[in-house]
């Protein structure tokens, strides 16, 4: 029960952060696995079954744009942040900084 509760709360905590991290990282164009690696290299490990569907969802919400393109003779779907996504990311970052500052004071 304790482990389940911790896991649920951890997931809740991470859910929003993953979206912010993915949007920010996609200021540079990436395809799915390259994005996952880029996030992991910076300490933000995201499960495959979370990240890849998330990209599709963010795209359907207009926050990302994507295109199929050939790279190294292989067709890959490349994503980057859209203008709407960038505007939303700015607002989320303001919110995140406020929360972070408040938490630092509380802790």
């Amino acid at each position: 029960m304790g482990d389940d509760l911790y896991e649920n709360l951890r997931m809740e905590l991470r859910r929003g952060s993953v979206i912010v991290a993915a949007l920010a990282q996609l200021r540079t164009e990436h395809y799915g696995y390259a994005l996952r690696k880029a996030l992991e290299d910076q300490g933000m490990s995201v499960d495959e079954d979370t990240l890849y569907p998330l990209l599709r969802r963010l795209e359907s919400q207009g926050l990302l744009v994507s295109e199929w393109r050939e790279e190294d003779r292989r067709r890959k779907r490349f994503y980057r942040i859209s203008r709407t996504g960038e505007a939303l990311l700015q607002r989320l970052l303001v919110e995140w900084r406020d929360i972070n500052t408040a938490l630092k004071r509380i802790l």
Binding site: Y31, G32, Y33, Y52, R56, R74, K76, R77
Partner: peptide, 16 residues
């Protein structure tokens, strides 16, 4: 479309 993308990501990971 989804399977093509997922397959590419898996193959990229295996190659990496």
């Amino acid at each position: 479309d989804l399977v093509a993308e997922l397959g590419e990501n898996i193959r990229a990971e295996v190659e990496d």
